[in-house]
Design a protein around this nucleic acid. Structure first.
Length: 578
RNA sequence: GCGCGGUUAGCUCAGCUGGAUAGAGCGUUGGCCUCCGGAGCCAAAGGUCACAGGUUCGAAUCCUGUACCGCGCGCCA
């Protein structure tokens, strides 16, 4: 199946060729929805590019293309407007059929542009022995949404949680454990105890250099596989993972792989040797470094990455090179996506430049999202920033606020367990949508009220529209999965149908651009279109003719399906009642 | 110092990678429950898209410069 935009774009391509412009050196410009319904439904701006390339009046080119357009059932009329816009008006009956077909399809009529391609996506990646706080939220939520969208597009996706589970912090923890551990506290809240030990180590080591020496020795023991260090490390990892898993379960996040930095330790010496042997890295002041220049990218002028420190230890750059190698060997992915905050941008530029020199063929993408800031301007994810709100605390508060609203409807939803489930979906949805409805690259300021808002452009609005669809379907006794004919008469019905039919192309654009907010925006518009339809078009009222009622129920069912699809791709739980 | 990013309504942010009259939410003001769900709907007010040039049929979007703000910059990840 193809999208409306694809269908029209192909028509323009055929027409341009027929009009004698097949050789014009321009990329085909995809058809896009018009901004104003007065201009039709979709427009092509291709004539402007053609006109420029051919040095002719774009209006004339547009006329020629229009004259050469093959007939198509979807197209009701085509007009040339303004300086050379080609405006399409789509046929009502054909649109209705297209939507009916999409609504009956489990994939909502979406093509599979990712079919046959493998994509590794690396996100969340928290540090062992630390607590997930609000600063960790973005990678997890954005990554999860992209993960789901890429799967929907047909990619064979491998999601990988690249844990920070290796290195000197564990040497420090082992030393601190031996000296200051409180077994009882560890039993009650192991991660809190590990945090306490880590912080105490940092404080004491500031005055006692010998402690750092011990930590280095324990780190070396760990890396050498010394049993005691190893078993402590395993214990630390286990208790941390147990806590992370609770959060992941709650958020519906599921990884195919959880290969932390420790998984690559054995590969590191080989990586450094190889980089040296190939002349990619050189020795410098006792360390091994890679130098970059402007040929690697503007931002890498005079940049240097250390791949082996003077003390012989590898760095995270080395680990990341090893990780790319491993992924290429194991999955031969076409694409590898990293979801981290923007501060790591240069690191990834360097990493990708090294990969290019190694001949790695995959398309490496860094989704660099903006930082989460606190109200006072402090960066929430900074290592120095203590006293941060824990992620679980945010989620709990969100659910609590949602629960207060849901309980007001206790007469309609008497079942306590159902209200709890609704509050969970609404509360977590609010947090998720607050983040995903923003362009990832923007910084976000942590604001309880904004993040947990339940009115306006929020998850609630979308969930509510979906629940209202279901309410109508329940009343009418209609199963949205059953195919039914549609008819589009009222302008609000047409607008809603067009919005629904655009969903597949929006998902594709949002995933490739790594911007879940494009999908969030579209769903918000979809919910607004549904509201306009709901206001203008009675469905279940007594004076509605049976045929009209049936057709409108079909539209409602299609809306429910489209909304549910979009919500799930963003990680939200669509509710049939709330 | 060098590099990267940002600056759009009172506030928080979108703006489909150059298209037609710049949009939401919150807040403000004024209307909608004899109901197919008011967690909603309708309407109003609110803009020199930081500033100055440039590119072209056309710029919030691309280029150059300036001013602020943020982030990063070889042995942390």
């Amino acid at each position: 199946m193809s999208t409306l935009s694809q269908t029209l774009t192909e028509l323009v391509q055929v027409a341009a060729a027929a009009a004698g412009h097949a050789d014009a050196p321009v990329a085909l410009e995809p058809c896009v929805p018009t901004t104003d319904p007065a201009h039709g439904d979709y427009q092509s701006n291709h004539a402007f590019r053609l006109g420029k390339a051919l040095r002719t009046n774009p209006r004339q080119v547009a006329e020629a293309v229009r004259a050469a357009l093959p007939a198509h059932p979807l197209v009701a009329s085509v007009e040339v407007a303004g300086p050379g816009f080609l405006n399409f008006r789509l046929d009502d009956a054909a649109l209705a059929d297209a939507l009916a077909t999409a609504a009956a399809d489990p994939r909502f009529g979406a093509p599979l542009p990712g079919a046959g391609r493998t994509l590794v996506i690396d996100y969340s990646s928290p540090n062992i022995a630390k607590r997930m706080h609000v600063g960790h939220m973005r990678s997890t939520l954005i990554g999860q949404a992209l993960d789901r969208m890429f799967r929907f597009l047909g990619y064979a996706v491998v999601s990988d949680n690249h844990l920070g589970d290796w290195g000197t912090p564990f040497g420090m923890l082992i030393v601190a454990w031996d000296r200051w551990r409180d077994e009882e506290a560890f039993g009650d809240d192991p991660v809190a105890e590990l945090l306490r030990l880590y912080q105490r180590f940092r404080a004491e080591a500031a005055d006692d250099p010998a402690l750092m020496e011990q930590a280095r020795a324990e780190t070396a023991n760990l890396q050498a596989g010394e049993p005691r260090a190893r078993s402590l490390w395993e214990r630390f990892v286990a208790v941390s993972m147990a806590e992370f898993d609770q959060v992941y379960r709650r958020l519906g996040v599921r990884f195919d792989e959880t290969l932390g930095e420790s998984a690559y330790d054995a590969m590191l010496p080989g990586v450094v040797d190889d980089l040296l042997a190939r002349g990619i890295a050189v020795e410098d002041e006792g360390a091994v470094i890679v130098r970059f220049d402007e040929a690697d990218g503007k931002g890498l002028k005079d940049a240097v990455a250390v791949v082996r420190k003077r003390d012989g230890a590898a760095t995270y750059t080395t680990t990341d090179v090893a990780t790319i190698r491993y992924r290429m060997d194991r999955w031969t992915p076409d694409v590898i996506v990293y979801v981290t905050d923007v501060r790591q941008k240069q690191h990834f530029q360097q990493l990708f430049a090294i990969a290019a020199r190694l001949g790695v063929q995959a398309d490496l993408r860094h989704v660099a999202f903006g930082m989460l800031k606190l109200a006072d301007g402090q960066v929430a994810a900074s290592r120095s920033g203590g006293g941060l709100v824990s992620l679980v605390e945010v989620l709990d508060e969100a659910v609590r606020r949602a629960r207060a609203v849901v309980d007001q409807r206790a007469d309609e939803i008497p079942d306590e367990a159902e209200r709890a489930a609704i509050a969970e979906a609404v509360g977590l949805g609010a947090v998720r949508y607050a983040d995903l409805s923003q362009n990832p690259q923007s910084d976000v300021t942590f604001d309880w009220d904004k993040m947990l808002a339940l009115t306006g452009n929020t998850a609630v609005y979308l969930l509510y529209a979906h629940a209202r669809c279901w309410s109508m379907l329940r009343t009418a006794g209609v199963d949205p999965g059953t195919p039914r004919p549609l008819a589009l008469i009222d302008p609000t019905e047409r607008t809603l149908a067009l919005s629904l039919l655009r969903l597949p192309e929006i998902v594709a654009t949002a995933a490739e651009a790594a911007r879940p907010n494009l999908l969030a925006d579209h769903l918000f518009g979809l919910a607004q279109d549904f509201s306009a339809f709901y206001l203008a078009c009675p469905v279940l009222k007594d004076d509605v003719e049976p045929a009209v009622r049936e057709a409108r129920l079909g539209l409602v069912a299609a809306t429910a399906r489209g909304m549910a699809l979009g919500l799930e791709l963003l990680g939200l739980t669509p509710l049939q009642r709330m």
